[in-house]
Simulated assay, not measured.
Amino acid sequence: MKRIGILTILLLTITISYGQVQWIKNYDVARAQAMAENKFIVMDFWAIWCGPCKKMDVDMWNTTEMTAYADKFIFLKIDVDSNRDIAMKYSANTIPKVVIMDASGQEIWEEIGFASASMYLKVFEDFPSELAPTEQIAKLIQKNADANTYFSLGAWYQESSKNTESVSLKKDILNLSDSYFKQAAKESKTDALATEAEFNVILNHAYRGAYKKAMKKVDKMEEAEMKNFIMAYCYKCEGQTQKMREFMDKITSKELLAQLD
C-alpha cells in the first residue's frame, strides 16, 4: 500500500507538472527555440520588487487556465534589472509588461499592467497558432530580406487577422501587416509589386472597419482588380448590396470574388 501510495503521488506530480508554462530566462535561447518549433514568444518583463508582477504570477501565469497555452507559445521571463538592454529595446519602463513577438524579435502585441487575467487569456486564445513562414523570418534574422519577403509577411499577417476576435490584437496584427507592405513597396524594384502593396495597405483599413477611409484612398488609385475588390468589400460591409454588385461585375478574379460571397 505504501508503495502504491508513493507511485500515486509521483504520477499526480507528473500530471500536474505536464503542460504547465515553462519559462526560459535567456532572450537568444527563446528566439532560437521559437524558430525551431515555429512558435511565437510571450515575453514577460518583471522584477522581484514588482507587486503587480507577483499578482500576475498568482492570478494568471500559475493558474490552470494557462496550461491551455503552455504548448502554443515559447515563454520568456525578462528581469528588467539584470536585462536592461532588452528592457530598453522594448521600452519596458513600466512593469509588468507582456510582449508577444516572433523569432526575429519583431513585436506584434503588447500590454502594460495587470488588472485581471481575462484580457490576456483572450489574446492568447485568439493569437495565430503558427509562426509566419520560417523562410521569411529567417531572412529577417539574417538581414537579407527583399521586397518579396516583406510582401509575403504582410500578406501572412493580413490573413491571420481575419480569424482574430480581439479588437486590440486585430489592430496590432494589421499594423504589422501595414509595416511589411510599406517596406515591400519601398524595397520593390517593380511598380507592379509596389502598387499591389499599396492596395493591401488600403485593404487593411477596410479590415479594421474604416470603410469610408479605405474607399476614399482607393478611389485615387488607377483602375485595377484590387480597387474594385476593395470598393465591393466596403459596400458589402456597409450593407449596400446594389453598389457592391456594381463593382463585383468588374472583377474577373475567381479568388477575389470568392471572398465576397
Results as ranks from 00 to 15, higher is better:
E111P: 03
I112V: 07
F114Y: 12
A115E: 13
S116D: 09
M119S: 15
M119F: 12
L121I: 14
K122E: 07
K122Q: 15
K122P: 02
F124Q: 15
E125A: 15
F127V: 10
F127G: 07
E130F: 12
E130W: 05
A132I: 08
A132Y: 05
P133K: 06
T134K: 14
E135N: 01
E135I: 03
Q136R: 06
A138K: 08
A138G: 03
D146W: 05
A147R: 08
Y150N: 11
Y150M: 05
F151P: 05
S152Y: 05
L153G: 11
L153V: 06
L153S: 04
G154F: 08
A155K: 09
A155D: 05
W156S: 02
Y157F: 15
Y157T: 03
Y157E: 04
Q158Y: 08
S161P: 04
N163L: 00
N163D: 12
N163H: 09
S166K: 09
V167P: 07
S168P: 04
S168Y: 11
S168I: 09
D172A: 14
L174A: 02
S179Q: 14
Y180F: 14
F181M: 14
A184S: 15
A184D: 02
A184L: 07
A185D: 06
A185W: 00
A185R: 04
K186V: 09
E187Q: 13
S188E: 02
S188M: 04
K189E: 07
T190V: 10
T190E: 14
D191M: 13
A192W: 13
L193F: 03
A194G: 05
T195I: 00
T195C: 03
E196A: 15
E196F: 06
A197W: 07
N200S: 10
V201D: 01
L203S: 00
L203Y: 15
H205Q: 09
Y211T: 09
Y211E: 04
K213R: 05
K213Q: 11
A214L: 01
A214G: 01
M215L: 10
V218K: 02
V218Q: 11
E222K: 07
E223C: 08
E225L: 13
M226R: 10
M226A: 12
K227T: 02
N228H: 07
N228E: 00
F229T: 01
F229I: 04
I230L: 01
